[in-house]
Design a protein around this nucleic acid. Structure first.
Lengths: 167, 167
DNA sequence: CCTAGTAGGCAACTCGGTTGACCACATGCA
DNA sequence: TGCATGTGGTCAACCGAGTTGCCTACTAGG
């Protein structure tokens, strides 16, 4: 590393330009995600990727979901979803059993192991959130949450927010 | 699409669980990013990816940056950075000229075309930000920005924030 | 001056997606 | 009832953006 000559980058300070908030959002999420992944590694968890977490969350909330449902929710093709499902099944996080109303389909369900993972992940996210709360205060955090939810409501209306990851 | 039986998902509402704010962050950024990409496509721009934007931003702020500097900043290998640089050079967004102090290296610099793109991108991000401001109010947006900056300062201290994308 | 280190590029590979083709079952309708 | 059309799921080939490994050219410090 070396040469790049640092100029007085106007990246922080009160006199900021508009249009930086989206980037700040991304950086903050990135920071929390890094923290999350670090803690996960510390705890000796498998190399599960964010998409897996979203998968678990979806399956926990929707009974008898199919691979195609999942694909739609994640915003990927059914083939990609199928691969992920096979992998997660192999690792014992979910099971596929005959679908009660469609003999072509498999109904997906989390195993206990899958639910355990989800709970642990929720806890880790809560830790990251808590750290932010300690910096800015619980009241400010609640305000931020409300502001984020307002934006999402505005953007997606009543429809279910596509939970697919930013990767 | 079909079967997935929707349960009363506790994903919104005031009585929310802790640990969801990081996800909200990701979803909000995702929404803004989708909007950004949509507008970019409308304007007939090339298939530039987020990483390219970060590259432009870095080159605009650091004179005589090398490929290795860029790689470090983006958090990728120098080979990957090298590929991206070659691509962007081919498209006329940046130039490589002999480095003034190191004959092994190339000093990277944005072309006018590159600067144009950056300005346009900044404007599009500002649009997305503005949309949020219209939903929650300019004062709340400013508060959110301050809260995000506080978290990033807390996390990265004085060191430069790794601007690498969430992809 | 010689050695250790660094900028950069080439090649082979990985990984998580994609498109395309296909089969099995489902559904609507004449 | 039978059939056309649609949909769940899988296999296979491919793609893009990253990776590791290896090499050369130049730098810089004893």
């Amino acid at each position: 590393m070396s040469a790049a000559h640092d100029e007085p980058k106007p990246t922080n300070g009160p006199g900021d330009l508009p249009g930086q908030v989206p980037l700040l959002l991304a950086m903050a999420f990135r920071a929390m995600n890094d923290r999350f992944l670090g803690r996960l590694a510390e705890l000796g968890r498998e190399p599960l990727r964010p998409a897996h977490g979203y998968t678990f969350r979806y399956l926990a909330a929707h009974t008898d979901a199919t691979t195609v449902d999942l694909a739609a929710h994640l915003g990927i093709t059914k083939q990609a979803a199928s691969k992920a499902v096979a992998e997660l099944e192999g690792w014992g996080y979910l099971t596929r059993h005959p679908h009660p109303r469609d003999r072509r389909a498999h109904a997906l369900a989390l195993t206990g192991r899958g639910r355990d993972y989800l709970h642990q992940a929720d806890q880790l996210w809560a830790e990251a959130e808590q750290e932010w709360a300690e910096v800015i205060g619980a009241d400010r955090l609640a305000a931020v949450r409300a502001d984020l939810e307002a934006y999402l409501r505005h953007t997606y209306g009543g429809t279910e927010v596509p939970l697919r990851p930013v990767w």
